[in-house]
């Protein structure tokens, strides 16, 4: 459901659909390769880009000064990132990060972060 909401926001539904197909194929590989309990960490594109977020944002949602992102939903992340992309203020750090992500990458990252939050998992 969340994926369907996010796609119009970034106007790349086609790219997302391809990505979902691709992610599913990767998931299948993962099931085949790692059938036992020690499943590997998520290495999707969203997870790889989200690793960058953890350089500043405490992934548990703690931290005092840098705003937490661990509990945001997918739409909130995309909306915030589009605002950061549009303006250097209030954070040129986030402006730089937002500019570096394509719409597809942004959608994948937001989806990963939101899914992780809703699953209550840690990275």
């Amino acid at each position: 459901m969340k994926r369907q909401r996010a796609a119009p926001i970034v106007s790349r539904a086609k790219g997302l659909a391809a990505e979902i197909r691709w992610l599913l194929s990767i998931s299948l590989s993962a099931i085949l390769l790692f059938p036992e309990s020690s499943a590997p960490a998520d290495v999707s594109q969203g997870a790889q880009i989200a690793a960058t977020c953890a350089s500043c944002h405490d992934p548990t949602g703690g931290g005092q000064a840098i705003p937490p992102i661990a509990s945001l939903d997918e739409q909130a992340i995309v909306k915030a990132m589009l605002a950061f992309r549009a303006s250097e203020s209030p954070s040129h750090v986030m402006h730089a990060v937002a500019l570096s992500l394509s719409d597809d990458e942004l959608a994948a990252t937001a989806r990963y972060l939101a899914d992780r939050a809703s699953a209550g998992r840690q990275p």
Binding site: Q64, A65, I66
Partner: peptide, 14 residues
């Protein structure tokens, strides 16, 4: 300066 303190804590945990 305040952000810097928060960054240090998150970064070293990462």
């Amino acid at each position: 300066a305040h952000h810097a303190m928060g960054w240090y804590s998150a970064f070293t945990a990462d």
